[in-house]
Simulated scan of single mutants.
Amino acid sequence: MDYELPLGTDPVSIRRRVEAMEHVLERAFTVPGINRQIGLDAVLGLVPVAGDVIAAAMGLYIVWEARNLGMSRWQLARMTANVGFDTLIGALPVAGDLFDFLYRSNSRNLRIIRRHLDKHHPHTRVIDG
């Protein structure tokens, strides 16, 4: 997948940036042996406090891009709650690290954005073949 990040404010550019950020945060690396994909969200969660704050800020960037798309307050609130819940539980020692490995708030937020884009900007869809 090509992850060139267009700088435009059009829905196609925003979709590409959000998809690239979700990929980095949730699926950038594959764990050998278990063949499970993880991203910076889980890796940063291993660093106490600062890692969770950085991961939350990166997750909130996705919410900010959703706001730029004109998504509803309800959708933005759900997305912010996803990031907040991930950050809150992810901050717990040991259990939070396992939680970060399983709960993918950025993937959930990407699904919300894709539903919005598919409904309001169908020309942004990319058909993978």
Score class of each variant (00 low, 15 high):
1 M>N: 08
2 D>S: 08
3 Y>F: 12
3 Y>H: 11
10 D>F: 03
11 P>Y: 09
13 S>G: 13
14 I>C: 06
15 R>L: 05
15 R>H: 12
16 R>N: 07
17 R>M: 07
19 E>M: 08
19 E>K: 07
21 M>I: 08
21 M>D: 03
22 E>D: 13
22 E>H: 10
22 E>T: 13
22 E>W: 06
23 H>Q: 13
25 L>A: 00
25 L>P: 01
27 R>L: 01
28 A>I: 00
28 A>Q: 13
28 A>T: 02
29 F>Y: 15
29 F>W: 15
29 F>C: 01
29 F>A: 02
30 T>D: 15
31 V>D: 06
31 V>R: 03
31 V>T: 08
32 P>L: 08
38 I>Y: 13
40 L>V: 06
40 L>D: 04
41 D>K: 08
42 A>Q: 09
43 V>R: 09
44 L>T: 07
44 L>N: 07
46 L>H: 15
50 A>F: 14
50 A>W: 14
51 G>Y: 01
52 D>Q: 08
52 D>K: 01
53 V>P: 02
53 V>R: 11
53 V>S: 07
56 A>T: 07
56 A>P: 04
60 L>R: 05
61 Y>M: 10
63 V>C: 05
63 V>W: 04
64 W>I: 06
67 R>C: 01
67 R>P: 02
69 L>A: 05
71 M>L: 11
72 S>H: 10
73 R>I: 01
74 W>S: 11
75 Q>S: 15
76 L>M: 12
78 R>F: 13
78 R>Y: 13
78 R>Q: 14
80 T>L: 12
82 N>K: 03
83 V>H: 02
85 F>M: 15
85 F>G: 11
85 F>I: 15
89 I>G: 00
90 G>F: 01
92 L>Q: 03
92 L>G: 04
93 P>E: 12
93 P>D: 12
95 A>M: 13
95 A>H: 06
96 G>S: 00
96 G>H: 00
97 D>F: 10
97 D>P: 03
97 D>N: 13
97 D>T: 11
99 F>S: 07
100 D>K: 13
101 F>S: 04
102 L>H: 03
102 L>V: 10
102 L>R: 05
104 R>S: 10
104 R>F: 11
106 N>R: 09
107 S>C: 00
111 R>H: 13
112 I>L: 15
112 I>R: 10
116 H>N: 07
118 D>M: 02
119 K>V: 06
119 K>S: 09
121 H>I: 01
122 P>S: 06
123 H>C: 01
124 T>H: 09
124 T>K: 09
124 T>E: 10
127 I>S: 10
128 D>W: 15
